[in-house]
């Protein structure tokens, strides 16, 4: 029961502070799931994020995977509800107090202040995800290829994730 409570607590926090889009949640999740609670290994966390990309929903759905791994179906439901509740709550408040939020200068300024922090956190997340798991040259090639394709060709993230998984599977025959 305790672990379910911890899941709820962690993912409510992730949901509430995930400013800057779904991807901004990744560093927060990684910190709580991999570093603080040791619920998942670095590569299992990568799997959680990747599976979140091949499903139609948002990145936050990775919480479902993590919850399931930690506490089964109950964990999956609790983590999912917890990560989406803050979004709904804030949208409700924005709708309710619409006129006040419309004086957007201050809100915009706060978001502009958060953005550089999110950039730093995500770079940090990429490094701490890659360091324990990237050992071979072909993996570095995959990183470069995926980043380049995502930036220049706008290839869908799900496709890129599926492609890199296939490359990994092929490499097991080669090595």
């Amino acid at each position: 029961m305790l672990i379910v409570y911890q899941l709820a607590h962690s993912f409510l926090k992730v949901g509430f502070f995930g400013f800057g889009g779904g991807f901004a949640m990744i560093p927060l999740m990684q910190r709580m799931v991999v570093h603080q609670n040791n619920w998942l290994s670095a590569s299992q966390f990568a799997a959680a994020i990747a599976l979140g990309q091949v499903t139609p929903g948002p990145v936050a759905i990775s919480a479902t995977f993590i919850g399931y791994k930690v506490a089964g179906l109950t964990g999956a439901v609790v983590a999912t509800v917890a990560i989406f509740t803050p979004s709904l709550l804030v949208m409700y408040l924005i709708e309710k107090f619409y006129l006040k939020v419309r004086e957007k200068e201050i809100t915009q300024a706060v978001l502009h202040g958060i953005l550089p922090v999110v950039v730093v956190l995500m770079l940090q997340a990429a490094i701490s995800l890659g360091r324990p798991t990237v050992h071979s040259f072909w993996q570095i090639l995959v990183i470069v290829m995926v980043a380049a394709l995502a930036i220049t060709r706008k290839v869908s993230y799900g496709l890129l994730v599926a492609g890199s998984t296939a490359v990994g599977a092929l490499m097991s025959f080669w090595l």
Binding site: V118, L129, G130, T133, S136, V142, I143, V161, S164, T165
Partner: peptide, 26 residues
Amino acid sequence: QSAMKGLTAGVVGLLIAVVWDLVKRA
């Protein structure tokens, strides 16, 4: 396990792409 190695690398690449997008929008 080998597929996972590719997948992890792919996710790192995606994170870099998202960072790039954020920097451009900033």
